[in-house]
């Protein structure tokens, strides 16, 4: 079993880059949304408004961090820490390029799924400990949504695992040298994409924090940097889903040789980040029961059929 741990430098630099990218996405998202909605977006602070992130960070760090007296203090403080921890842990198995990555694990895909399922506690505890009816409603929705979409997320990846014969993300990328998995696994890709948005509860599936219906959902009572951690955690989740899609379905770092592998990875991943932001601008939020019905009655059977067909094709190809 291989379970190689990268150097300390590797770990620190990957963590830093990932967190900085997640923070920069606050600006990227607002600018891109501005372009698509025919307005400017934040362009005052620094060149192109790039320093807006710094201003936002300064603001959020110096804001009063208020813990409501009626809240359950222990879980209230624990909740935002969980989301940051599990998402950053998931990044440890992502293969960014040959030699760039933290852990080369034989159970990489399972590790990511385990971390995703632990991430549900963050929103649940956040809402439950706030002792606020909107927060509770938000976290109830979040719990049901994340537990359901986790199922399809896992099953949609099994086709790839069967094709590669490994849970190792690095081997999955290398197996795509002859062709990206998005072509044979197009159904798996679409299901993973939808489930990924639901797992990171971003618009259009931001039902746990739908501000028009339930204030801000599970983080209604949060302020200051605790809210900031939920916020950055959401962007980290976005980067994670984009990186996973790149590694699992679009050949990871593989690409024509005129660019170094890490650039191919970054290019593909940023394409999906931009795609998710466009999706936010383009698609309205479904109703809660619609989301559940759609998941269990459509996505679940579809992902099972996809797995069945993939298995049958592999079996036929191997000659019985």
């Amino acid at each position: 079993m291989r379970w190689e741990v990268g150097s300390a430098l590797n770990i620190v630099s990957i963590l830093l880059v990932v967190v900085v990218i997640a923070a920069m996405l606050i600006w990227v998202e607002r600018r891109l949304l501005g372009i698509w909605q025919e307005r400017l977006g934040p362009n005052r602070v620094g060149p192109l408004g790039l320093l807006q992130v710094v201003a936002d960070m300064l603001k959020i760090f110096t804001k009063e961090d208020w813990t409501p007296p009626f809240a359950d203090k222990f879980s209230f403080i624990l909740a935002p820490a969980i989301i940051m921890t599990v998402v950053l842990m998931s990044f440890s198995v992502i293969p960014f390029a040959p030699g760039v990555g933290i852990i080369d694990s034989n159970i990489g895909v399972l590790f990511v799924l385990a971390m995703a399922s632990l991430g549900a506690y963050s929103v649940m505890l956040g809402g439950l400990s706030s002792d606020n009816k909107y927060a509770l409603l938000g976290s109830l929705r979040a719990a049901a949504q994340m537990v359901s979409y986790e199922v399809f997320m896992g099953i949609s990846l099994l086709g790839i695992v069967a094709l590669t014969g490994s849970f190792n993300l690095r081997e999955i990328v290398q197996a795509q040298a002859d062709g990206w998995y998005v072509f044979p696994q197009i159904i798996g890709f679409i299901i993973f994409l939808i489930a990924g948005v639901a797992e990171s509860h971003r618009l259009p599936f931001d039902i746990p924090e739908a501000e028009q219906e339930i204030c801000a959902g599970y983080h209604t009572e949060y302020s200051g940097m605790k809210f900031g951690m939920f916020f950055v955690g959401e962007y980290l989740g976005l980067v994670l889903i984009s990186s996973l899609i790149t590694a699992l379905f679009f050949g990871g770092w593989l690409g024509p040789g005129f660019l170094p592998p890490i650039f191919w990875f970054a290019l593909k991943a940023s394409f999906f980040v931009a795609f998710f932001i466009l999706m936010r601008a383009a698609i309205p939020r479904p109703r809660y029961d619609q989301l559940m019905r759609y998941g269990w009655l459509f996505l679940l059977p579809l992902s099972l059929v996809n797995l069945l067909v993939t298995g049958a094709v592999i079996l036929a190809g191997s000659g019985g």
């Binding site: 159970i107 399972l110 399922s117 537990v147």
Partner: peptide, 28 residues
């Protein structure tokens, strides 16, 4: 003990799924 698959299933199924349902009931 050399059972990485069992370890991950323990995390996904018990810690990740069953306990979420417990918490869900407590919330209600």
């Amino acid at each position: 003990f050399g059972a990485p698959f069992a370890a991950m299933l323990e995390a996904i199924v018990y810690a990740g799924a069953i306990m979420v349902l417990f918490l869900f009931v407590i919330m209600m």
